[in-house]
Nucleic acid binder design. Structure first.
Lengths: 247, 247
DNA sequence: CGGACCCTTGAATTATGTCAAAAGGGGTGG
DNA sequence: CCACCCCTTTTGACATAATTCAAGGGTCCG
């Protein structure tokens, strides 16, 4: 009955001292530039594998001193902050290979909290060491600039004025693409976050998320069972999400 | 009758080969690190003064190849994009010393348009050259990282779910602070953008901007004459803007 | 002096939020 | 294996902030 029985099989290699995990945002930094093995070793030296942390673990909290960024090695992470009037704003969900903490560079403190949505392992990169290394590895510096710049664009896209339908469509499509680029199915995936979290991320009430998802199902766009999603009409979804899509 | 007769007097020095314009985002990069004069000269060598451009000049447009960032030397710049359904989203307003173009690094193309809101002069920095220089000047690299990270936070703040009052209060306060840090009055300033632009930035209809401004006046928070603003009750304004404020 | 544009104001509409309650799973313990 | 409880999700009814539509009034500029 459940159409989501078959789960995608994560390919989470740990790197071998010469290459990074294939899905990591830093994969390719070296090879593209033809760096020698010593530089590569250096990059690996400043990586620290941490975790696994069980679902619900608070990875860092707002105000914590910043000293490292992290790439998700497995699981899913949510970042959020609680504003002055107690409202929760979800800033992002981070999938395999995505980088957490770039927003903390500015003030040298984390501007938000991060929590594991399921069992999470991370690669921790000392940022001071990485910045130093980046002075000797222009490719690494470039990649850091690009990642930072990309996050500006992501945040700006969320800041736009879009309808609930557009936001929801863009959200589903974004997850789909990010899973797809990591070798998972673009059509079927399981989300780890609650409707409330999705709502706080998309700036919608949880009830609105629920209603939009229902309507998308009624209209044949999606097939949803609890937190498992199947995209039935990618084209129409993309069409809806068009105003928000930015890459 | 007009309470805004006295205009603030801009202090826009042009640098002298040893120091940068005092309000520029790159001011202090060198001195803080004790670099020698040659490094400083290099930084100055990659700066190109451009403009002045009259109000309405399109400085770059979405899709243009990216090769340089720019600091505002005088005037005010607006960046915006038109989404797939024709809606205009204003991404930011840039004051004296603020850096435009950091969001273009990621894709090597400008993701938005930029237009001069009044007479605008810029300092243009070749980004490839700057990045190269940053490998030899850690202080410059750090500053670039910080500026990029700051922009993530700015964009994320705009992405939150706030009322029209909160957004408007935060907007006025933000302008006030930015003017103040450049030596202008925090209490009186003239905006160069239309209500429509403010609305597109704050994700509000122009009519809503107008109504909120009126109410703020009725409540004694502001004194507004066309595009000239005077803040009468900074404390209450700050209180309103609290949920949005982030630095 | 005319025209264009911007801003303001009012009235009606609407998308989304809020409140409340019920339904559905999943886990736990008997 | 069932009964119960807790938590998330769904659904409905209602409330409301903000938009939209429409008109009028200022102001600036040619």
């Amino acid at each position: 009955m459940n159409p989501f029985r078959t789960k995608p099989n994560p390919i989470t290699d740990d790197g071998d001292g010469l290459t990074f995990c294939s899905s990591c945002a830093f994969a390719g930094v070296c090879h593209s530039e033809g760096y020698d093995k010593s530089a590569l070793q250096e990059l690996h030296c400043l990586v620290q594998h941490v975790g696994p942390y069980p679902a619900g673990t608070l990875l860092f909290r707002e105000g914590d001193p910043f000293n490292a960024i992290a790439a998700v090695r497995s699981g899913m992470v949510k970042t959020f902050r609680i504003d002055a009037s107690g409202r929760k704003q979800v800033l992002g969900f981070f999938l395999l290979g995505e980088i957490i903490g770039l927003d903390a560079i500015h003030s040298a403190r984390f501007p938000c909290n991060a929590v594991a949505l399921d069992t999470v392992s991370l690669c921790r990169f000392s940022f001071p060491m990485m910045a130093t290394l980046a002075t000797r590895m222009p490719g690494l510096q470039t990649q850091l600039f690009r990642l930072l710049s990309q996050d500006i664009n992501k945040a700006a896209a969320m800041a736009g004025d879009f309808s609930a339908d557009e936001r929801m469509a863009a959200f589903v499509l974004s997850i789909s693409r990010r899973f797809a680029s990591r070798g998972f199915s673009p059509n079927r995936f399981a989300l780890s976050m609650s409707r409330t979290d999705i709502g706080n991320y998309l700036r919608l009430a949880a009830e609105t998320v629920s209603r939009v998802v229902r309507r998308f199902q009624d209209e044949g766009l999606l097939l949803v069972d609890r937190r498992e999603f199947e995209i039935l009409d990618m084209a129409r979804l993309r069409c809806l999400a068009l105003p928000l899509l930015r890459e």
